[in-house]
Write a protein that binds this DNA or RNA. Structure first.
Lengths: 138, 138
DNA sequence: TTACCTGCAAAGAGTTTGCAGGTAG
DNA sequence: CTACCTGCAAACTCTTTGCAGGTAA
């Protein structure tokens, strides 16, 4: 299956029609070796630069949100200023460089087992998110 | 030292004059037994309900930000929708109930030591934030 | 008296929505 | 052909800023 077919499948399974604009969004998101951390703005800029043509924010937003809902993208809570997404949907955590606003993946094995010793009756743990804020060494 | 004197001291050490409005903000924030998790909106509502009078958002914002800068309040990154603050400035983590948007403190001892096995050259770890997302048990 | 503060309103940033023309199926 | 999509612009929400009158020191 080539990339384009994969993208079409992702879009369809997210309830979206595979339009030209959305296939370009997919290309920017998923046609890469490494994890991609981005804000909506980053993504819009990249897609538009690649296409050399304006793409509506409405399209970017609805595509990203559909992918997030379907689980093809993860949202990362860093701070309230910027809303980050991550194409790495495996279980992992992050370094966040506050100087540069850069996110770096921490593989699951890079973080020791996290033990939560408190229990809330009637609730179960859904997901643990760890953000390791880093700064220059001086 | 009574509460009012403590509040005046907090304000002054944050570079703010102790005005009537700010003393009320202090009362809502710090005159309580338990940790208080809030958004700017929560705080504005509470202060205004107590005073039965409108308080400018400008005042709320500049006071909260000055306290945060001075370290009397902590900011918590949960998601991009809401910006939470915490009157508990000790080292601790949080449960976040996604159904109710409620934050619950995890004492430091409730979370096992977190071991980060990866190092970024030239950077040091400033601070680790853990959010444990919880949901109903069913 | 002077510098800071308050309240209001307007301005910004990021996100969402409504609509009319366009496109996939 | 119909339902969905796109692009645009307007609307919304949250936060910040500017200003004129008011208050702390």
């Amino acid at each position: 299956m080539n990339n384009n077919q994969i993208f079409v499948k992702k879009l369809r399974s997210s309830g979206l029609r595979p339009t030209k604009q959305r296939l370009h969004i997919c290309k920017v998101l998923f046609d890469r070796k490494d994890t991609f951390h981005f804000t909506i703005n980053d993504l819009a800029d990249l897609v538009q630069r690649q296409l050399n043509k304006k793409i509506s924010l409405a399209t970017i937003y609805n595509t990203v949100h559909a992918f997030k809902k379907k689980g093809y993208l993860k949202e990362i809570s860093i701070n309230s200023d910027k809303n980050y997404f991550d194409t790495n949907i495996s279980n992992h955590h992050h370094f966040f460089n506050e100087g540069t606003n850069e996110l770096i993946d921490l593989k699951d094995k890079d973080v020791g087992r996290i033990k939560i010793k408190k229990n809330i009756p009637g609730k179960k743990i859904k997901f643990i998110e760890v953000i390791v804020k880093i700064a220059n060494n001086n």
